[in-house]
């Protein structure tokens, strides 16, 4: 089968710190893949490789290959703005811009040169509907995004990414700033989005990984220890370290 994202011998160093060691991962299209592991294991760093956000940090050096639809994302003819449009990202802390709801959702489109009013309005409605936010905010489209609740803000951030019609959604601990009920809503939303998007989620919450992900990767100290179907990782881990982690011995 064709994988959406595939890495080969991926190594990342940050100054002298070896943050990713020979990572090989294959991410299936239209599914949710979770990356779990204790803090500092490199899971967010791996996620940020997929849209080349690590390059904004000074002193980062990457070797190895990352393929998106079989094409190397580090090849010189890759346009970074297009790559980041195809591979969207949702952050740990909801970070809507201090603009109106409308301007937040249309931001990505405007950045990519869409100016037609009707097109922007359509995108706002369809993106907000896709994230089940439309009914909550349809009367407040011109109000400040920062006035929304934390959960609504995070859903707005997801709408903002969905609006540019990405292929991959990277989610870096998207629920860690939310309460359990809001977390449940976002998880439902992720499952509903998975039939259109390839979702990769980083989480320190193993139950969350078990609830949403079909595939699961366990990382430790920069190494991808084990990768496979979520059920197998949790119920029948092959590696002792994975077993210790999923059974709660550390982390």
């Amino acid at each position: 089968m064709d994988f959406k994202i595939q890495t080969q011998d991926l190594n990342l160093t940050y100054g002298k710190f070896h943050a990713l060691k020979d990572v090989q991962i294959q991410i299936k299209p239209q599914s949710i893949t979770a990356i779990i592991g204790p803090s500092g294991c490199g899971k967010s760093t791996l996620l940020r490789c997929f849209n080349r956000m690590n390059e904004l940090i000074k002193g980062v050096h990457i070797t190895g290959r990352i393929h998106l639809d079989g094409k190397d994302i580090h090849s010189p003819d890759v346009d970074l703005t297009i790559l980041r449009r195809r591979v969207g990202m949702v952050f740990q802390k909801p970070n809507p811009f201090p603009l109106s709801v409308f301007d937040n959702v249309t931001y990505g489109l405007r950045v990519h040169g869409v100016r037609r009013r009707s097109e922007l309005e359509e995108a706002v409605e369809s993106s907000l509907r896709a994230t089940w936010l439309w009914d909550d905010v349809k009367d407040k489209l011109w109000g400040p995004a920062l006035a929304l609740s934390a959960e609504q803000q995070q859903r707005l951030c997801i709408s903002r990414v969905v609006a540019v019609r990405p292929e991959v959604l990277l989610m870096d601990e998207p629920c860690s700033a939310l309460d359990p009920i809001a977390t449940g809503h976002i998880e439902d939303l992720m499952r509903s989005l998975a039939d259109r998007y390839t979702i990769v989620i980083v989480t320190h919450n193993m139950q969350q990984a078990a609830r949403v992900a079909s595939e699961c990767a366990f990382m430790l100290l920069g190494e991808l220890v084990e990768f496979g179907p979520t059920i197998r990782i949790f119920e029948n881990p092959k590696d002792k370290r994975t077993e210790d982690y999923v059974s709660g011995h550390y982390g």
Partner: peptide
């Protein structure tokens, strides 16, 4: 985080500066 959010949406540094940071 605003800056990161904008860059992650594919905005250039200049777009990020005038569309988000200055506002």
């Amino acid at each position: 985080s605003y800056w990161q959010g904008s860059i992650a949406l594919g905005a250039t540094k200049w777009q990020t500066t005038h569309m988000v940071m200055l506002k």
